[in-house]
Amino acid sequence: MRKVLYFDCFSGISGDMTIAALLDTGISLEWLESQLLKLHVEQKYELKLNKVIKNGINSNHFDVIFEEASDHHDHKHETDHHTHHHRTYKDIVQMIENSELNESVKTMALDMFRVIGEAEAKIHGIDLDHVHFHEVGAIDSIIDIVGVAILIDHLGIDQIISSPVPVGSGHIHIDHGIYPVPAPATLEILKDIPIKNTKVVGEMTTPTGAAIIKTLVSRYGEIPNMKVNKIGYGAGTKTFPTHPNVLRIMLGEGN
Score class of each variant (00 low, 15 high):
residue 2 R to D: 03
residue 5 L to M: 02
residue 7 F to N: 02
residue 10 F to T: 03
residue 11 S to Q: 05
residue 14 S to K: 04
residue 15 G to H: 02
residue 16 D to Q: 06
residue 21 A to W: 14
residue 21 A to R: 14
residue 23 L to W: 01
residue 24 D to E: 10
residue 24 D to K: 03
residue 24 D to Q: 04
residue 24 D to G: 00
residue 26 G to L: 00
residue 30 E to V: 05
residue 34 S to N: 15
residue 34 S to H: 14
residue 36 L to D: 06
residue 36 L to F: 06
residue 40 H to L: 08
residue 43 Q to A: 06
residue 44 K to H: 13
residue 46 E to C: 10
residue 46 E to Q: 14
residue 52 V to L: 08
residue 56 G to A: 09
residue 57 I to A: 00
residue 57 I to C: 01
residue 59 S to E: 11
residue 59 S to Q: 12
residue 60 N to F: 13
residue 60 N to K: 10
residue 64 V to K: 07
residue 67 E to L: 13
residue 67 E to I: 15
residue 68 E to S: 02
residue 68 E to I: 06
residue 70 S to P: 08
residue 70 S to G: 04
residue 74 D to T: 12
residue 75 H to P: 01
residue 76 K to F: 14
residue 81 H to V: 08
residue 83 T to F: 10
residue 84 H to L: 14
residue 85 H to C: 05
residue 87 R to C: 09
residue 87 R to H: 13
residue 88 T to L: 11
residue 89 Y to M: 07
residue 91 D to K: 00
residue 92 I to K: 01
residue 93 V to G: 03
residue 93 V to Y: 05
residue 94 Q to A: 15
residue 95 M to G: 04
residue 96 I to E: 05
residue 97 E to I: 14
residue 100 E to G: 13
residue 101 L to S: 01
residue 104 S to V: 13
residue 108 M to K: 15
residue 112 M to F: 14
residue 112 M to V: 13
residue 113 F to R: 11
residue 117 G to L: 00
residue 118 E to V: 09
residue 118 E to R: 04
residue 119 A to N: 06
residue 121 A to F: 11
residue 122 K to D: 10
residue 122 K to N: 09
residue 126 I to F: 02
residue 127 D to F: 12
residue 128 L to H: 03
residue 130 H to K: 11
residue 131 V to R: 07
residue 132 H to M: 00
residue 132 H to F: 05
residue 134 H to N: 12
residue 136 V to N: 01
residue 141 S to L: 12
residue 146 V to N: 09
residue 146 V to P: 09
residue 148 V to H: 06
residue 153 D to E: 09
residue 154 H to I: 01
residue 155 L to I: 09
residue 157 I to N: 01
residue 158 D to V: 05
residue 158 D to F: 06
residue 158 D to S: 05
residue 159 Q to V: 09
residue 160 I to A: 02
residue 161 I to W: 11
residue 162 S to H: 09
residue 162 S to I: 07
residue 164 P to Q: 03
residue 166 P to F: 07
residue 171 H to M: 11
residue 174 I to W: 05
residue 177 G to E: 08
residue 180 P to C: 12
residue 180 P to W: 11
residue 182 P to F: 13
residue 183 A to C: 07
residue 184 P to S: 00
residue 185 A to F: 02
residue 188 E to A: 07
residue 188 E to P: 02
residue 194 P to L: 02
residue 197 N to Q: 02
residue 198 T to S: 14
residue 200 V to G: 02
residue 200 V to F: 03
residue 203 E to A: 00
residue 203 E to K: 00
residue 205 T to F: 02
residue 206 T to R: 03
residue 207 P to E: 01
residue 208 T to Q: 06
residue 209 G to S: 07
residue 211 A to S: 13
residue 212 I to Y: 06
residue 214 K to R: 11
residue 215 T to V: 15
residue 215 T to K: 14
residue 216 L to M: 08
residue 216 L to V: 01
residue 218 S to N: 13
residue 220 Y to D: 04
residue 220 Y to S: 00
residue 221 G to S: 02
residue 223 I to H: 13
residue 230 K to C: 07
residue 232 G to R: 11
residue 232 G to H: 13
residue 232 G to K: 11
residue 234 G to N: 07
residue 234 G to V: 09
residue 235 A to Q: 01
residue 235 A to S: 09
residue 241 P to K: 03
residue 242 T to H: 15
residue 242 T to F: 13
residue 242 T to E: 15
residue 243 H to C: 00
residue 244 P to K: 09
residue 244 P to H: 10
residue 244 P to Q: 05
residue 245 N to Y: 00
residue 245 N to V: 08
residue 246 V to T: 04
residue 247 L to C: 07
residue 249 I to W: 11
residue 250 M to T: 07
residue 254 G to C: 03
